[in-house]
Design a binder for these strands. Structure first.
Lengths: 110, 110
DNA sequence: TCACTCCCTTACTTTTAAGTATGTACCGTA
DNA sequence: TACGGTACATACTTAAAAGTAAGGGAGTGA
């Protein structure tokens, strides 16, 4: 499992590339969110996938998980210092993606 | 199937996100390549996946396929004009990915 | 006539990702 | 005693991506 990823692009795709990860990050880039908030903001995600993707992102170091030992429990997720380095990357991706979507709309048949 | 992709980041991941697509594009960013060249440059890819990914990339408009009706046939793949707009995107991704890989090497246990 | 090269195609199997459904710990309140 | 709210975990199922193996057409050289 400790395999050096060949191409750094694949690394990024691995970090961002779950079905819901871009959307999770998108919301966390705006502000810290609780687990419940994310569930509401991303209505179609299942609890399993939300938790799993949050764990993945935490493990990659891009988000932080803070537990408040209250009752009922409160868990906050936020972009880490390091995770903020993703913001300019996300902007570049967004720009290209938006442009690409427009392009595809214009010429559905090539 | 004509569903507006919600997040433009997902669009990019869709375009770049096959197992071999980043490597294919990497090689085509350097220069035009024949099918055979790509097979040799990417030893572990199967013919099926290579063909399929080339078709995908062609359909997205980022690469061009040129057939020379010679015998034996000759097929060249190259980055399209539009595909070249991916180069700066790839550079940003590479930079972040490389940094991330280094980071992971330094602190395998967090 | 047979083999060879190039660029695939197709059918089938395996692996990986995602979805669904249910259960749990905590404690305070009714 | 049962119930509610938060943030999960676990087992099982389905769907999507990738891998494997075999074949094919078209012309050329032996």
């Amino acid at each position: 499992m400790i395999h050096q990823r060949e191409c750094p692009i694949e690394t990024v795709i691995h970090v961002l590339g779950g079905k819901w990860k871009p959307m999770i990050l998108w919301h966390l880039m705006e502000s810290t969110k609780r687990y419940n908030d994310l569930e509401k903001l991303i209505p179609d995600v299942s609890q399993k996938m939300l938790t799993q993707h949050l764990r993945d992102l935490e493990q990659e170091g891009v988000i932080e998980r803070t537990v408040y030992p209250t009752v009922p429990p409160k868990v906050e997720y936020s972009l880490s210092e390091y995770g903020r380095t993703l913001i300019p990357v996300a902007e570049v991706l967004c720009a290209w993606g938006e442009n690409h979507n427009e392009r595809k709309q214009e010429e559905p048949a090539s």
